[in-house]
Design a protein around this nucleic acid. Structure first.
Length: 444
DNA sequence: TCTGGGGTCCTAGGACCC
DNA sequence: TCTGGGGTCCTAGGACCC
């Protein structure tokens, strides 16, 4: 007879576990609002913010959206609108946005210690400790205080799952709900279903264009249809992601709150050039320049890279020129964040994939297999040398310090080039109001 | 003339091992 | 002559997110 183990699995809980409650705090038109906090002349004007290289719109104010401008639209397509309606145009100012984001997140963390910073302008909060009748009022207080303390307005969705919470915050924006809160938790099921039947699947978090098209072909057009579709079928035909979304729509939480930031697995610097590059020499400069940026990022996060890859490509939108794209990767014998190592590696890789006669528009350097820098894994063949490691780390720290104090590229590597005619454009960036003493606003 | 940058997760397929 | 099956790891590519 089979012997029972000494320990027994505890019997299942009779009562169901306490309900989880998520709140998604989403900053409204975040980049635009960041600009508006420091420039009152654009409070009521339409505003757009352009992506790196000033090529496309990455954020648009409500006024700009109502004129027909959408996220992702190339600037040249809306230039006429910009002039006609005197739209204020900004290059993106990431140091400013990141700093404002940090302020918002610090503010949110006063409301709950269990907070997941999901993106630069969104965070999930654990609201499970609040009783049902307090959810909406607490949320409203949070929104008005955020506006007051940080200058940024929020949309808050409260629900038993992340997908529903996200949808709630979208509904706040779509219907301009006063108080800034949409609460699914205390809502009866038939009312939720009524709302879900008016939401298209492509508007759900986790369902992009491709999946939406495939789901539509199967007759699943609305969130309501997805919620009540057969899970096993969903999983087999569309993957586990879609199944999870369906369960989350039922209020069954499948995507947990991640309060501990997962260490990054990759880091990338990839930018379009201000003008196309043809010469290998220029490509080597650009790729070296990107490698320097990657090195700074690695050291800032106290990480070292075990692998590195580079890619180069022509402009896929330009049908008149010959197209070419390629990438190459390598592994370091020892993980490194030492810039000369990164430059050497990426230059070697680029030499392998570069082809003359093409007009290159974009390139990138990606580091992978990241390790925390304090973990050292000496290699089998004794290449590791502690003194050398310390000397290199010291050198890099010094360069980083100087560049931080006196400005980016006060000290730079010759490989980065001096003219840098290929650098991306960024003509309309606002001042670094919060991260550079020289740009602090003065009131007179 | 001019079309973003930086990530994550999942899946399928191949290599390898026992 | 007959030549397995299952697990794990890695990688590339696809899909998604903001």
């Amino acid at each position: 007879m089979k012997q029972l183990p000494l320990w027994q699995t505890p019997p299942p809980l009779v009562s169901s576990p306490p309900q989880k409650i998520f709140a998604l705090a989403d900053c409204n038109n975040f980049y635009v609002e960041c600009e508006r906090v420091f420039d009152i002349t654009i409070k009521n004007r339409p505003v757009i913010v352009l992506g790196n290289g000033d090529g496309t719109v990455v954020a648009a104010s409500r006024e700009a959206k109502s004129l027909g401008i959408t996220r992702g639209m190339p600037l040249f397509q809306c230039r006429a609108l910009v002039e006609k309606y005197q739209i204020a145009v900004f290059s993106s100012n990431y140091p400013l946005y990141q700093d404002m984001s940090d302020r918002v997140m610090r503010f949110l963390s006063r409301y709950t210690p269990r907070l997941e910073v999901f993106s630069i302008d969104e965070a999930y909060l654990d609201f499970s400790h609040l009783s049902g009748d307090l959810l909406t009022s607490s949320g409203q207080r949070l929104c008005s205080q955020a506006q007051q303390w940080t200058g940024i307005s929020l949309s808050l969705g409260i629900a038993p799952s992340k997908v529903l919470a996200k949808l709630g915050s979208e509904l706040v924006k779509r219907h301009r709900i006063r108080g800034g809160v949409f609460n699914f938790v205390t809502m009866p099921t038939d009312q939720i279903d009524e709302i879900l039947s008016q939401v298209l699947v492509e508007d759900l978090f986790g369902i992009g264009d491709r999946l939406a098209t495939r789901l539509n072909r199967e007759g699943i057009l609305t969130a309501y249809k997805l919620k009540y579709a057969d899970h096993v079928q969903l999983r087999n035909r569309f993957g586990v992601g879609v199944q999870r979304v369906a369960l989350e729509l039922q209020g069954i939480s499948c995507i947990p709150l991640r309060t501990q930031a997962k260490p990054r697995q990759t880091m990338m610097v990839s930018l379009s050039f201000g003008r196309p590059i043809e010469l290998l020499e220029e490509m080597l400069e650009a790729i070296s320049h990107y490698s320097v940026r990657v090195g700074e990022k690695l050291r800032q996060h106290h990480q070292q890279a075990g692998g590195l890859s580079v890619f180069i490509r022509t402009n896929p939108f330009d049908k008149r020129v010959a197209q070419y794209a390629n990438s190459a990767q390598m592994t370091f014998a020892l993980p490194t964040s030492y810039t000369p190592d990164l430059i050497r590696a990426s230059q070697e890789l680029v030499k392998h994939i570069y082809q003359p006669g093409y007009q290159f528009k974009k390139a990138g350097v990606l580091v992978s297999a990241l390790h925390p820098e304090e973990v050292i894994q000496p290699d089998l063949f004794g290449e590791y040398c502690w003194e050398k490691e310390v000397r290199q780390a010291y050198g890099m720290a010094l360069i980083d310090l100087i560049n931080k104090r006196w400005g980016c590229d006060t000290i730079f590597f010759a490989a980065q080039g001096i003219q840098r005619g290929w650098l991306m454009r960024q003509r309309r960036r606002s001042p670094l109001y919060t991260t550079d003493w020289q740009d602090v606003l003065t009131v007179t």
